[in-house]
Design a protein around this nucleic acid. Sequence first.
RNA 1: GGCCCUAUCGUCUAACGGUUUAGGACGUAGCCCUCUCAAGGCUGAAAUACGGGUUCGAUUCCCGUUAGGGCUACCA
Length: 500
Amino acid sequence: MYLPRHKYKASMEKLVRVRFAPSPTGYLHVGGLRTALYNYLFAKHNGGKFILRIEDTDQSRKVEGAVENLIATLEWAGIHYDEGPNREGNHGPYVQSERLKLYHQHAIQLVERGKAYYCFCTQERLEEIRQKQSAAKLQPSYDQHCRDLPKDEAERRNAAGEKHVVRMKVPLGGELTFEDIIRGKVTFSYSVLDDQVILKSDGFPTYHLAVVVDDHLMEITHVIRGEEWLSSTPKHVLLYQFFGWELPKFAHLPLLLNPDKSKLSKRQGDVAVEDYRAKGYLKEAIINFVAFLGWNPGDEREIFLLDELVKEFSLERVGKSGAVFNIEKLNWLNAQHLRKKPIAELLGMVKEYLSPSVGLVQSSLSNKHFDDAYVLQIIGAMRERALFVKDLIENCPYFFEPPTEYDPAIVKKRWKEQTPDHMRKLIEEFKLLEGPKKEDYEAALHRVAGALGVSNGELIHALRLAVSGMGIGPGLYDIVFILGKEETIRRISAAIERLK
RNA sequence: GGCCCUAUCGUCUAACGGUUUAGGACGUAGCCCUCUCAAGGCUGAAAUACGGGUUCGAUUCCCGUUAGGGCUACCA
């Protein structure tokens, strides 16, 4: 085929094309997110394409709405695909159940070349030999009963409509070695490879056939996937050889682990990205965290945004051993990103919490209106001590309504007999202030303390209690300034009344 | 059981044979700052699984042991 000169050159350094190929079982697993992320980072770092392909060849595991959810979560995280469902490129369709014909053709092709064969064995027979094998302590594998069925017999039974599958013909002796970017050379003996089914009796392909056909047809250059696929890679390599296709490069990622080091699973906590999203984790934190589970930039930087990861990422720096999903570090990263995030973005997120439609878990705040300038000030004051966006509001209810109760422990500690008098003095002093700034409140409080002959602290703690009802929070002068003079005075009076 | 992969502080990791008394981060302990809570700063405890080689020299290379994990379907 004729190729223009520049095209030819480009094909010498083939455009990187990678894919994330989840099966739609309902939600996006954090391990899946990391696989998707590494694929995305690798593609973008190398100026290549990131493709999303849906592997839905197991009809029994179909989950309604799973694909939509998967895509929505990926997009939310900022991992945008170049080609995939609803974003057709030149290699579609991108959903395997829509490519059945392709797999069928290729399976037949292999049968015709003598690289695969029809197998008419029933489930019952298969079950039977498996039981015999395990009873005899042999490794369970297909006994190749139909491997050498005469061609005409196979075709006759096939034509008669007898149920069958297609199995690949694994060489009887020898071994196979392939190169993995992360692990180096990996060798398997053919004797441990089963004559794997590649086309099921329902006409659907198994993963092994589908992945090879699709990766080839979609011109995938690098197969980056979880380590659980390492053991079946020789089957895939063999299929490439059977078809006479060029092998992509393989990179098998170490697994994400539970605290007990087993493969990260649902039983031991949340594994769905959606769960973390719902809990209020920032996408920036999740991406940053997951990126560092198995990869690092080689220096001591830890806080990375997606585009910074794109710049730094390389498969060479991906480790080989599994990584425990450690929530403490995620929490820390979330706090870091919460502080780093542009305040305007935070405003939007906070307002969502304040809106009647979303609402706050236990609050009457959602129906009130607070203007942006006011909320912005609260964010500024609370940001340093929040882990989640919701903390920005939930930890400081006093910014939204006067305290309805006063923390008894703090009352006991900070509200003494003489305190009401002190507070009255404070009110008097505050009343004299005109358009006070933070510093003005501070100076006023100092004056009162001096006149009263008490420490600033004594006044500060009592005042904090009076205006917030709590013993913790931002700097006192920040609180008072945000609340404003009138509201502050009102609250002090109320506290004097209620804490008699 | 068989095959494959892996092995540095509790956890995530750095070190690509010597610059190492094994570095950083989370967490943890203590101190400082301070109006509280945080944040921040400083300090501490904490690891090369074990045994053999190779080498002048091994965390680093090789072998074995042990441990963990993955796979072993007409699931992906």
